[in-house]
């Protein structure tokens, strides 16, 4: 709350609305629409892409909570039959890590972060599915290429969207707010 220059994207009400929409609607859209299309490779993971997107514009604490809530929603929304808490664990970590990327980072950095977030999330979830015995390792490895391909595509879209949307807003702040953000960032580190 004390460093508004760091994560200033959009107004708070808009971000809260996006977070609620993500938690309530993304799991439903995933099972009712995306998975029903019968896409080769299974289709994109909307909840993961949503958490990465929101993680880039939220503060770490908020991003973690949103990631956890969205993950838990994906864990209990029928017809999920895997361990409850698996997606919650993966997505609160991914949300937190994506929120650590400073808002004033370059387009390249944000692209890399979005790609890393979606890729890391998909890999961690697949690994957990194998470790927890939700799926056999053969089916985990068999499904991995398809889910990774969709995730990379989704991560790229998120990155492109963020890169094209965010710089326009940053012109209001300019270099001064960037310096302020840096100052707060390092200052907070020692606290």
């Amino acid at each position: 709350m004390r460093d508004p220059a760091r994560k200033p994207a959009g107004n708070p009400a808009g971000r809260a609305l996006l977070a609620v929409a993500l938690v309530l609607l993304a799991p439903v859209a995933q099972v009712s629409v995306v998975n029903g299309l019968g896409l080769p490779g299974g289709g994109p993971d909307l909840v993961l892409i949503g958490v990465v997107t929101l993680g880039m514009v939220l503060r770490p604490m908020a991003a973690t909570v949103v990631g956890f809530a969205a993950g838990l929603a994906a864990d209990i929304a029928p017809p999920a039959d895997h361990s409850i808490g698996r997606h919650a664990l993966v997505l609160c970590l991914i949300g937190y890590l994506c929120a650590l990327v400073p808002a004033d980072s370059s387009a390249g950095q944000r692209t890399a972060a979005a790609l890393g977030g979606t890729l890391g999330g998909a890999l961690l979830d697949a690994a957990l599915a194998g470790v927890l015995g939700d799926e056999s390792w053969t089916s985990v490895l068999g499904g991995l290429p398809g889910s990774l391909a969709w995730t990379v595509a989704g991560g790229t879209l998120v990155a492109v969207a963020l890169v094209s949307l965010l710089p326009r807003r940053r012109r209001f702040g300019g270099p001064a707010s960037r310096a302020a953000a840096r100052g707060h960032y390092t200052g907070g580190h020692h606290a």
């Binding site: 990631g67 956890f68 609160c92």
Partner: peptide
């Protein structure tokens, strides 16, 4: 602290 707590909650849920 928040991520650590939520990670713990997730592990407990699993």
């Amino acid at each position: 602290r928040a991520p650590a707590l939520l990670v713990l909650v997730s592990v407990l849920l699993i």
